[in-house]
Design a protein around this nucleic acid. Structure first.
Lengths: 215, 215
DNA sequence: CCGACTATCTTGTCATTGTCAAGATGGCCA
DNA sequence: TGGCCATCTTGACAATGACAAGATAGTCGG
């Protein structure tokens, strides 16, 4: 890859290296996800020594967590943008779900990293106050924030009678579960390589969201 | 682990080793999935040399594929049993989805292996007629067979007016996508570690399946 | 009954990786 | 000016997947 800077200053770039590492890692997770991520390879891509990443990420998993966090932010923005473009509540919800699926399709490696089992298992079993823990807690917050978008749409819609009664969390969960499952079936099973996947996603999501409508 | 046999015969067990390797691998994939699977460790667990698995599985991925296939068979049987225990079509579908989720919760490592990105990527890019390819084609068939259960329920239900009109594939896809997504949210995000997850799953799935009912 | 063949498993090796420990470098502050 | 320290490098180690070559035992043809 391109050397880090034309001036070839070897080190002492400060915190910028951290960002560069994440940026390079964002490339390497495509398409396989965390399994395709090698700390050494990332270092090589950025042009630093193999142990340089250790200063910012105690673990390979910590680097993956930072990548995942960046992914959640990007996905969040995509969804937010899609939602803002609609007026009716049901359309907002559908748009959010489809944006979710579309993101997964376009960046399946990143998407896989965001939901990597390794990260989940570590989150369940966090070492107390180990350095670099921020990346993981950050991750949890971003996930919650993302789900919050769906809950808000549902709550607003319920207030105006657009959606059926019931705990907003459950309705939102139904929507995100379907979107998540659909996305994963697309990318983790060969589902629909031939057909237009987004069209298929729309049909299926409409069926699911039908169950959320008021009647 | 327990030595392979009390007689300690070192090798020449024939095809039985293959089964033993898969059996041992089924243990090792818990809880992490394919990432926790080491061919060498499996060989060690069975009591053979580190290169012995190579005779049955050209790849580490081929071993994982065999594990995944075994997983799909187990899950298929769980679902089938749950479906047989119900009479109404809508109850059959709900039971199938819940059995799906429950399987994922109880064997999350195996479940993760079944849908591992590495397997998906290889399936998309199969080397032509390489030895050990059977494990992968087998996998595809098992997946299709599993989805077929859902499609059949939907089709039968539609025939008797229990479900709404529409392509049976799409309705079944909506159900499985929700179940799949719910399962993954449970195991890949800390979702619901405290609450009773199966109860939550039932509530959410009822919302989704409501959208499939005839009205 | 003997010798060769073959499937089956073993031993040895190599490149790669994650992680740790120790050393070098250059800016910053007393 | 001189020392301190964050930052990066070099070096090392164990583990892994993959490959090559060798050993072992059952079998089969003569």
């Amino acid at each position: 890859m391109a050397p880090r800077d034309s001036k070839k200053q070897a080190y002492h770039w400060g915190e910028q290296l951290r960002g560069d590492l994440v940026e390079e890692a964002l490339r390497q997770v495509e398409p396989l996800g965390i399994a395709g991520l090698s700390a050494r390879e990332v270092a090589r891509g950025v042009g630093v020594s193999h142990a340089a990443p250790a200063h910012y990420f105690p673990d390979r998993l910590a680097l993956a967590a930072a990548v995942a966090a960046a992914g959640f932010e990007q996905m969040y923005e995509s969804i937010e943008a899609a939602v803002r473009a609609r007026r009716k509540h049901s359309e907002k919800l559908l748009a959010a779900c489809l944006a979710y699926v579309e993101f997964a399709l376009e960046r399946r490696g990143l998407y896989r990293t965001m939901y990597a089992p390794e990260l989940a298992e570590r989150l369940n079993n966090l070492p107390r106050s180990r350095k670099g823990l921020d990346d993981f807690t950050n991750l949890s917050q971003l996930k919650a924030k993302g789900f919050g978008v769906f809950v808000d749409i549902v709550r607003d819609g319920q207030a105006e009678g657009a959606f059926r009664a019931g705990k907003a969390d459950d309705l939102a969960r139904a929507a995100t579960a379907a979107a998540h499952g659909l996305a994963r079936q697309f990318i983790d099973e060969g589902l629909g390589v031939r057909i237009d996947r987004m069209a298929h996603a729309r049909q299926v999501m409409e069926i699911v969201l039908d169950g959320l409508e008021a009647r």
